[in-house]
Each structure stands twice: as structure tokens, then as C-alpha cells.
């Protein structure tokens, strides 16, 4: 453990160029995947929360279950999709950060969708009548409800971030863990472990946890500031 802290400190203090590159790539992949999942998942979840249609129950259950989608399976599916012999092979995306973003957004999408649905469903139960009396249709209520539930939705988005940033199974398959190109924090940890450099691997793990802590703290702080300025 002591060695790991020393290794982590040495890496941070030295602002190791490779480390900076790996951290930046990890952030880029995870945040892009998160954005992609939010662009699709927030409206989709909101619609599921307020629109009633036959078969809605099974769809909700399916999306909830997909929150536990095994990353390695998601990775394999994206691999087969992007492989040169696969349906999207012509794009040449396999072993690129783009492939990793795609795989991770598939993993996060159910989390963002599912939590959004719950938040919006509750808000709709509470304010639905009022909104309708103001002449707002269900579809037009979607952005309103999303905006209104934003503080709760942040939790869903952070859960998605956590899943993506901690994930190794999918990105190592579709990214290939290529040095300087698709090596992220988690795949670097896997590689250093396989070299027997356990202290360095754990040191990288500590840095990854610090990053997650910093991002969550920033989200918490931003939420508090927004509430204060809104007088809540």
C-alpha cells in the first residue's frame, strides 16, 4: 500500500507525460460517452416517464435490467459491429477512441434512461395536472420536467459517469489498449498488473479514484450553488 501511494505521488508530482495523456483520454472517452448517453437517455427516459403505451411495463423492466449489462458483452457486441467483417466495418472505428465511446455510451444509456424515467414519472404524478391545465401537452412537458428534476437527474448522470470511468471490460476489447492511442486509466492498470508492477497499478488506481472524487465534488458544489441562487 505504501508503495502504491509513493508511486501515485511520484506520478502526480512528476506530471508524467504519459500519465497526463492517459488521464486526458480517459476523461475524453468517458465524458463523450456520458454526453452521448444523456442526449439520448434524458429525453427517452422523460418520455417513458410520462407517456403511456401498451407494453410500457416490459420496456421499463428491460431498461432497468440493462443497467446490469455486462461490459465485456457490450464490448464484444461493439467489436463485432465495428470489425472490418461486421456491418459497420467500413467506418474503420475499431481500435479507436470512437469505438470506446460507443461501447461506453451503450453501457451508460440504460442508467441515465432509467433514473430519468423514475424522476420524471414522479414529477409528472405530482405536477401533471397543473401542467395540463396550463395547456401543456405531454411532449411539451418533457423539457420542463427535465429542467425541474435536474438536481435529482445529476445523480443519474454521476452514476453513469461512475460506471464508465471504472469500466475496463468493454474498452479493452474495442480499444485494444494501444499505447498512446487507446490506453485509458483502467486498461493501463490491467496492463501494469499483468507486468507484476502492482504498486504502480494501484498508484494509477488511486489517481483514478481521486479524479472521480474531484468530479463528484464539483457536481455537488455546482448543485449547491445553483440551489442557493434559486433560493431553495
Amino acid at each position: 500500500m505504501g508503495d502504491a501511494f509513493a508511486a501515485a505521488l511520484a506520478l502526480i508530482a512528476g506530471a508524467d507525460e504519459t500519465l497526463v495523456e492517459i488521464v486526458l483520454l480517459s476523461l475524453r472517452v468517458t465524458l463523450s460517452a456520458l454526453l452521448l448517453a444523456c442526449v439520448v437517455g434524458l429525453p427517452l427516459g422523460a418520455l417513458l416517464g410520462i407517456v403511456r403505451f401498451p407494453g410500457r411495463g416490459p420496456v421499463v423492466v428491460l431498461i432497468n435490467a440493462l443497467m446490469g449489462f455486462p461490459p465485456v458483452v457490450a464490448g464484444l457486441l461493439v467489436y463485432l459491429l465495428l470489425s472490418r467483417t461486421g456491418p459497420l466495418g467500413a467506418l474503420g472505428l475499431l481500435f479507436t477512441p470512437g469505438a470506446m465511446i460507443l461501447a461506453q455510451s451503450i453501457l451508460i444509456l440504460p442508467i441515465v434512461t432509467s433514473i430519468t424515467r423514475q424522476v420524471v414519472e414522479d414529477l409528472w404524478a405530482e405536477y401533471g395536472e397543473q401542467l395540463r391545465s396550463l395547456g401543456s401537452g405531454r411532449l411539451r412537458a418533457v423539457p420542463t420536467l427535465l429542467w425541474d428534476g435536474r438536481h435529482s437527474l445529476v445523480t443519474g448522470v454521476l452514476a453513469g459517469f461512475g460506471r464508465a470511468s471504472a469500466e475496463v471490460g468493454a474498452v479493452i476489447i474495442v480499444g485494444g489498449n494501444i499505447a498512446g492511442h487507446t490506453r485509458t486509466m483502467t486498461t493501463a492498470i490491467a496492463l501494469e498488473t499483468s507486468k507484476g508492477n502492482l504498486a504502480l497499478a494501484l498508484g494509477l488506481g488511486l489517481i483514478l479514484m481521486l479524479l472521480a472524487l474531484a468530479i463528484n465534488a464539483a457536481a455537488y458544489g455546482a448543485g449547491r450553488a445553483a440551489r442557493r441562487s434559486a433560493g431553495l
Binding site: S32, L35, V39, G92, L134, R140, W147, D148
Partner: peptide
């Protein structure tokens, strides 16, 4: 307390979609 769908929302959504698409394909290309 409620706001309805505004042009601002749509613009933000469009910008986010554009950015996400660029993130996915842009750098590798």
C-alpha cells in the same frame, strides 16, 4: 416555475448532438 420547450433548449440539444458526433468520429478521422 415551469418553463416550456424553448428555442434555447433545442439549440443546446443540437449543439450537444453535434459535439457527441464529432467526439465519436472526428479525432480518429
Amino acid at each position: 416555475m415551469f418553463r416550456t420547450l424553448t428555442r434555447r433548449h433545442l439549440l443546446a440539444l443540437a449543439a450537444a448532438t453535434g459535439f457527441a458526433t464529432a467526439a465519436l468520429t472526428g479525432p480518429s478521422a
